[in-house]
């Protein structure tokens, strides 16, 4: 019974928490853009404009819902749902802290420690594209279809380097479980470097982060919704809360991706050189590890904003070229080097 209760609390808790981060993230995005662009940004709704996402949400909820006459209704309605649900589900296997001991019961800070967590992420992550393509197709709008097509091509192309980059991590740590990988990143290697994925797989990290930006449809890979080319891409015809789901799903995606990056490459909840877990009590360590994890996540979230307001956008053929001619050979090379290294050292 307790297990059930804990599971439910964890699911609901992390759901609310990710939701909250995504909401704050919309605020961070706008204020961050304003900061980078020398302007104040939204500052009327609540202190520092913090309630701006709330206002947007209320407005989107109470706006008239329009289903275009020529749209394919079922697909049109399913699009945003299929986009935002996988975004939430993917977080299930991403850890958000070490563990916490409550009443002699050890609770790991992860919704579910699936031993094939990687495969789950890859599978669920590639579900999101269905939301995009269905939305693009169902809207019966040429811009939307173009956006959907772009998104599909992009997702298919970047799934491959993403998976190959992850394979490098699997080689190094020898497990598919995200929690095991996180645990393995404690301590140092070669005497001075933290035992983090980024130091063991530097090339893999670069490949992963580039592919992740592409998967998240963020600048410079935001072609599916390239504003100046195809208006708003796949969500051109969406208004009211359906649009909200798309916009919101994007931020949830970002949280998930940042979580994965931190869990795999940035030592999860570990501080470099210091093992705080040894000094702190079980409960406080649980909280501290949670905080450390989300500090790291917020750094990567900020990076998404930072990059977005700095770089121009790629062109369609360049994205494809980068994916197939740049990333995939590099990823294969990375795997080869990793395998060779492991073979020689073991």
């Amino acid at each position: 019974m307790d297990d059930w209760l804990i599971a439910i609390i964890k699911v609901v808790g992390i759901w609310v928490w990710v939701l909250l981060i995504a909401v704050v993230m919309t605020w961070v995005e706008r204020r961050g853009a304003a900061l980078i662009q020398d302007r104040p940004g939204p500052n009327r709704a609540g202190p520092f404009g913090l309630f701006q996402p709330l206002a947007d949400g209320i407005k989107l909820f109470t706006k008239e819902e329009i289903i275009p006459t020529n749209a394919q209704k079922l697909l049109y309605i399913m699009g945003p749902l299929l986009f935002s649900l996988p975004a939430f589900s993917a977080y299930a296997v991403v850890p958000f802290g070490d563990k916490i001991i409550l009443g002699g019961k050890e609770i790991i800070l992860q919704v579910s420690d699936v031993n094939v967590g990687f495969l789950y992420i890859l599978a669920i992550g590639s579900m999101g594209v269905y939301g995009v393509i269905l939305g693009g197709w169902g809207s019966n709008n040429k811009y939307s279809i173009l956006g959907g097509l772009r998104s599909t091509a992009q997702m298919v192309s970047y799934e491959v380097p993403l998976g190959l980059a992850l394979l490098g991590i699997v080689f190094v740590y020898g497990t598919f479980s995200l929690r095991d990988i996180s645990l393995a990143q404690q301590g140092t290697f070669l005497g001075f470097l933290p035992n983090w994925g980024i130091f063991k797989q530097p090339l893999g990290f670069i490949l992963f982060i580039v592919a992740a930006y592409a998967e998240a449809n963020r600048v410079p890979f935001d072609l599916p919704e390239a504003e100046s080319e195809i208006v708003s891409g796949y969500h051109t015809e969406y208004g009211s809360m359906r649009l909200g789901l798309y916009l919101f799903g994007e931020y949830v995606n970002l949280v998930t991706i940042s979580g994965i990056i931190v869990a795999l490459y940035f030592g999860s909840w570990h501080m470099p050189y210091i093992d705080l877990g040894a000094y702190l009590g079980p409960i406080s360590w649980g909280i501290v590890s949670f905080c450390i994890f989300f500090l790291k996540v917020s750094f990567f979230l900020w990076m998404f904003v930072w990059v977005r307001w700095t770089l121009p956008r790629f062109r369609y053929d360049q994205v494809m070229g980068l994916g197939w001619r740049g990333l995939i050979p590099l990823a294969l090379f990375n795997i080869f080097i990793t395998a060779l290294f492991i073979q020689l050292t073991v």
Binding site: R30, A34, R39, P40, G41, P42, N43, R44, A45, G49, Q52, A55, D56, E227, V231, S232, H235, T236, E237, G239
Partner: peptide
């Protein structure tokens, strides 16, 4: 204008 929330100029 973004101060008043009039951000994200959307052409759709």
């Amino acid at each position: 204008m973004a101060r008043f929330g009039a951000e994200r100029p959307s052409f759709s």
